[in-house]
Design a binder for these strands. Sequence first.
DNA 1: TCTCTATAGTTGTCCTACAACTCTCCGAGT
DNA 2: ACTCGGAGAGTTGTAGGACAACTATAGAGA
Lengths: 248, 248
Amino acid sequence: MSIGKREFKPDKNKASLSNQIRDHMRARILNQEWQPGEKIPSEFVLANDYQVARVTIRTALRMLESQGLIDIRHGSGAYTTNFGKGIRAGLQELRSISETIREMGFTPGVVIRASELRLPNKAEAEELRISLDENIFYMERAITADGKVVAFSYDTVRITDLSQNVINKFSTGSVFKALEAFGKHPVRAMSEIHAIKSELIGWGPSKPKSGLYLQLKQTHFLRDGFPIMTGSTYFVEGRFQFIIHRTI
Amino acid sequence: MSIGKREFKPDKNKASLSNQIRDHMRARILNQEWQPGEKIPSEFVLANDYQVARVTIRTALRMLESQGLIDIRHGSGAYTTNFGKGIRAGLQELRSISETIREMGFTPGVVIRASELRLPNKAEAEELRISLDENIFYMERAITADGKVVAFSYDTVRITDLSQNVINKFSTGSVFKALEAFGKHPVRAMSEIHAIKSELIGWGPSKPKSGLYLQLKQTHFLRDGFPIMTGSTYFVEGRFQFIIHRTI
DNA sequence: TCTCTATAGTTGTCCTACAACTCTCCGAGT
DNA sequence: ACTCGGAGAGTTGTAGGACAACTATAGAGA
């Protein structure tokens, strides 16, 4: 089936239908298939387009509303919200940076500067709730969009049963995909946000001259509440636009 | 009717039922009537307790899930997350900065540097969706905790029906309280987050030497979707800790 | 021209039913 | 005594239909 210019095929093995539709519609919004401020089709029409029940569409729409992408008005319709341009991400959504970059129409990439198996320091062991003699996987990466660095990342992953070919996965792209490769799906993260100016963070040819970064110091958790990854991502100021939807 | 220790009476004149139930259940979570990590009653039971349809409960639950307060597992149930307390200081909650400061055990204060009625510039008029000949209220403030500045704020308020004594309220403390004084309750805000280094932002005796700020460029909206206030708040790096809860 | 009303369109809520998934418990087999 | 697997109960996900509540618009009437 084709909806707009995009294909939509429900995948039985993956997330729930409403979650798949939410992601599909998010892509349509971010790619401005639906213009900012524009009214999107009614729930009835969408239910027909996607060939699902109206309640399924509603669930997806409420999630998009919670994330600030649309604005639902009783008796009137749902309208996409107005944003600026550039790469942007709702901070409260835990999503792969690479995926976000791809959805914005750029080509994501990863450059690994260093990666190693080593023992954690005290802070890392505490964050990951492991003992000091349990190995962790540490890596330093640069995330790029169309070849230009948008963020530098320093992360440690808790890996009890890590084989070499799984480690290799981390080098090829999204950390989330690599984690999924051995059945670990982080579902939430706690982040501290800081403004940082330092010459020591960036590296490589597209290291920013300003040295100005938005730091996300975060720990990712699995569904059962256990931490799986901790570290800091430094977003180069001006190359990535962060949005937060704040509600009462 | 009594649910837990809390009363719940649907108010026909206010928000939708599911929104009222969402707020009611959020209070139960934040007050730890449901302990962190605990399983909350099933949708069926909640629907009976609140005397509404299951779909209404579901809508409320999905919103709470989007805000990271609960975790819904297919076939199992919904569980409160382990971060009930921390979220309150979180960025995604639209709350008065002064109130947050007070909750953290400091004494909040406000210093007004400038305030005036004037015409909006083009960007301001667009953000507030008003015409260029409609007056706005502009102010420059410093928000303090125990006398030390934690943020500098530059805001414009849309004031169609604003009397002088209401304007005075803005000088005395929380902007939210002042807005409520004439029946305007912002319910959500869209924020861009930036790292900024500038000598032009701060002022007064506790202007930071580093010139490093976390900028929240935000617009506040009323329940009907219309913007009421727009501007930027610059948090002095290191004096205010921002936490954000990210979920899928 | 202006105001009010009828009406069509859209979202909110209700109801019932069943599918899909999770967790526990109990019995068969080793 | 222990392991494994299946049955069954409980819970969330999706379906379909119906009506209530609200909004926007066009048209009638003053």
